[in-house]
Design a protein around this nucleic acid. Structure first.
Lengths: 194, 194
DNA sequence: GTCTATATTGCGATAGAC
DNA sequence: GTCTATCGCAATATAGAC
């Protein structure tokens, strides 16, 4: 326990600071001071600044494993899709900095993108695509539905809600109390249309 | 013309480099060398690195003004929405680096966010919201449709298609030849549902 | 394991020559 | 307008004491 104290403190502080200002926007001097640790501890535990960043990424994207369990739910495709939407929203609530690493790595990939980020996103999307294909084969969804484009549309809808917060919070209420209403609205959009 | 030569060369090079590695990921030394200009020209023309960055932002987000003209089209809400989707896709084609500034400023805002980025995004979204409200009042769309959430869903769908490119290009074809098919698919999703 | 002190490199900005 | 040379500072990494 005590051995990990400084290590976890550094990851926690780095998660916040790297998210707020990016990998190049924070110095390890400032970061270690904010964590209440000596600057040399970063090299000692993580072999330098990049190693600390990769540890943060690994921690943030580990939650994508949960997507596996949705695939194996004993329910229909529409229920699985609702589970996906609910999980996506909750993921952004539980990991408020995740979307920053997500978009930062997609637009300015570091060397860790292909090792950590890409596999996580690809696996989650593939599972969503399989769910939609299941619905098309069942004749529950339209047969001319493109599963890949539809999956991207769903993922984009939910992620953009959180991504746009800073630009829309003046006229759109983003509080968690509205999450269930949002899920209902999204599901209605996809089942009933406009 | 000749007076602006170095100035425009600096903006062009900065647009690419800041997009690829972020404001803090590029030094003005490297940038000026890549542009074939002396480093002191950045202070001379833009009053420093930040000034150059703000000039890039201003240039990238100026295309959002076009959204005004969609509002005033003499057509129904559904046609206006299709115009919005088409414009959003074309915008990402014409300005391949725009989405990087877009997401970077939304997740790690600089001091120019509230001056340049926020007003552009807010105006475009408000126009889209008005179009959807028009459709609800016409009884063309469902009366329980939430215009704000729907507008975000549409914007998110299109932007995420481009944002996700790096993670999905192995299994989703993102070439411009498919854009019209994509527009049709998105419009079908919103009119017919799944 | 943890610290301080320091070596080394690279940064942004600018003075001053042309 | 444009350049080179340089100033002053802050960056990462690490040696060495404890």
């Amino acid at each position: 326990m005590e051995k990990k104290d400084y290590k976890t403190a550094l990851i926690a502080t780095a998660t916040r600071l790297f998210a707020e200002r990016g990998l190049n926007g924070v110095s390890i001097r400032e970061l270690s001071t904010a964590a209440g640790v000596s600057i040399s501890m970063i090299s000692y535990y993580f072999d330098g600044k990049e190693g600390l960043y990769s540890a943060v990424l690994l921690d943030q994207f580990s939650c994508f494993r949960y997507m596996e369990s949705i695939k194996e739910r004993a329910s229909g495709p529409l229920e699985k899709i609702e589970e996906y939407v609910r999980w996506s929203i909750q993921r952004n609530r539980d990991y408020p900095y995740l979307l920053r690493y997500y978009t930062s790595e997609l637009t300015n990939p570091t060397r860790y993108f292909s090792i950590i980020v890409q596999p996580a996103l690809e696996k989650a999307l593939h599972i969503l695509i399989e769910i939609i294909k299941e619905g098309v084969e069942n004749k529950q969804f339209r047969e001319d539905l493109n599963p890949e484009d539809t999956a991207l549309a769903m993922a984009g809808m939910v992620n953009y809600y959180f991504l746009s917060t800073l630009a829309t919070q003046k006229f759109i209420n983003h509080s968690p109390e509205r999450d269930e209403e949002l899920i209902r609205h999204y599901m209605d959009l996809f089942t009933k249309g406009l």
